[in-house]
Amino acid sequence: MEPIDDRIMVTGGAGYIGSHTVIELIEAGYTPIVVDNLSNSSLESLKRVEEITGKEVEFHNVDILDEKALDEIFETRNISSVIHFAGLKAVGESNKIPLKYYNNNITGTLNLLNLMDKHRVKKIVFSSSATVYGDPHTVPITEEFPLSATNPYGRTKLYVEGVLQDLAASDPEWSCILLRYFNPVGAHPSGKIGEDPKDIPNNLMPYVTQTAIGKREVLSIFGNDYNTHDGTGVRDYIHVVDLAKGHIAALRQIHNKKGCVAYNLGTGHGYSVLDMVEALKKASHRDIPYQFVSRRKGDVGSCFADPSKALKELNWKATHNQDDMCRDAWNWQSQNPNGYRD
Rank of each mutant, 00 (worst) to 15 (best):
N331S: 06
H239V: 10
N104Q: 13
V273P: 00
P184D: 02
G246T: 08
V57T: 10
S190F: 06
F292Y: 14
R48D: 10
E93L: 13
A329F: 03
L167F: 02
I52K: 07
G18T: 08
G194R: 10
A168P: 04
G134R: 09
L178P: 11
M205C: 02
E44G: 07
L38C: 01
L70A: 01
H285N: 15
R295Q: 14
R180A: 06
L113I: 15
Q335I: 00
R216I: 08
H137F: 07
D236G: 06
T150A: 11
P206V: 10
G231N: 02
V132N: 04
M325T: 02
T267A: 09
H285V: 03
P201I: 07
Q333L: 14
R155H: 12
Q335C: 04
F182L: 08
Y30N: 00
V261E: 15
W330F: 06
L65G: 09
L147E: 06
H229R: 13
N183E: 08
N264M: 02
L167D: 00
D196M: 06
L43M: 12
V62Q: 07
G186K: 11
T156I: 09
G268S: 14
G162A: 06
M205P: 01
E75A: 11
I177L: 15
R216Y: 11
G223H: 04
A279F: 02
I221F: 05
E72T: 03
S127V: 03
H285M: 06
V234T: 03
N202F: 15
I97H: 06
V234L: 00
T107E: 12
V132I: 15
I106W: 04
M276K: 04
T232N: 05
E2P: 10
N37C: 13
I200T: 15
K309I: 11
V218K: 12
E217V: 05
E27S: 11
P172Y: 07
T53N: 14
R341K: 15
E27D: 14
N78I: 05
F74H: 02
D66E: 14
F85H: 13
C176H: 01
E72L: 04
S80G: 15
D171L: 05
N111I: 00
A149C: 14
R7M: 03
S302V: 12
H239K: 11
N256F: 03
W316P: 10
K317P: 00
P337E: 07
